[in-house]
């Protein structure tokens, strides 16, 4: 792929997809759909890395893309699905605020990110949009964590945040050293496993995966 203009186009396209999958989280009602949205998000992320790898021709980026697909696109969704089955929770997401409001709030979040990062000086070149999108994805992930009641949706929110961060890292450095990428990926994997175990434990202890019950733990 030597045509730069097309490359820009592809990158923008994929970035938009990333944002869209994140925003869609606000509208989804079933946990399984949320996991699917995340899977899609991860695949999109991997393909973005792949495109950048094609452009830069750096081999380690190919590896990064591959690992991303493997871990975030396959392993984590499988694991999440298993947890959901194991916990036998109701399949509704049960947000605190209804879909319309949360969609509008995420729109506001994206707007805030776009305006505040519109003329940030430290970003050069084609990846400026990607940075804005990555921060927006991050904030939406956080927002999802806030508004969702169940432990599993919290995990998904966290994973979105992580994807956002990963993207931000790429947009700023056009590819971090492989060892850091590997470290981060491993971290996320472990984090998800631990959180999954916690979620199961919470469910077992409080007979509910509703995090509100944790309020009683404070001193």
């Amino acid at each position: 792929m030597n045509n730069w203009i097309e490359a820009y186009f592809v990158i923008d396209f994929i970035s938009a997809g990333l944002l869209l999958t994140a925003v869609s989280m606000n509208a989804l009602k079933r946990i399984e759909s949320c996991v699917k949205a995340y899977t899609l998000n991860s695949w999109l992320l991997a393909s973005l890395i792949f495109v950048i790898a094609l452009m830069n021709g750096e081999t380690h980026l190919y590896a990064a893309a591959g690992i991303t697909v493997l871990s975030k696109g396959i392993l984590i969704p499988l694991f999440l699905g298993r947890i959901i089955r194991k916990m036998r929770v109701t399949h509704e997401v049960e947000p605190y605020i209804n879909n319309v409001v949360s969609l509008s709030i995420s729109a506001v979040l994206v707007a805030v990110v776009y305006t505040s990062l519109s003329d940030a000086v430290f970003i050069e070149g084609f990846l400026k949009n990607v940075l804005q999108i990555s921060i927006a994805v991050l904030l939406i992930g956080l927002f999802i964590m806030i508004t969702r009641r169940k432990a599993v949706t919290q995990v998904i929110g966290l994973l979105f945040m992580e994807n956002g961060l990963f993207l931000a890292g790429f947009s700023l450095t056009s590819g971090m050293p492989t060892i850091i990428e590997l470290g981060v990926l491993f971290d996320v994997l472990m984090g998800v496993i631990i959180l999954g175990i916690f979620a199961v434990q919470i469910r077992r202890t409080f007979a509910s995966a509703d995090l509100d019950r944790l309020n009683t733990l404070k001193g």
């Binding site: 605190y96 956080l142 964590m145 806030i146 508004t147 919290q154 995090l211 509100d212 944790l214 309020n215 009683t216 733990l217 404070k218």
Partner: peptide, 8 residues
Amino acid sequence: SGSLHLYL
């Protein structure tokens, strides 16, 4: 408050 959501 002890609420995870509030902390977030």
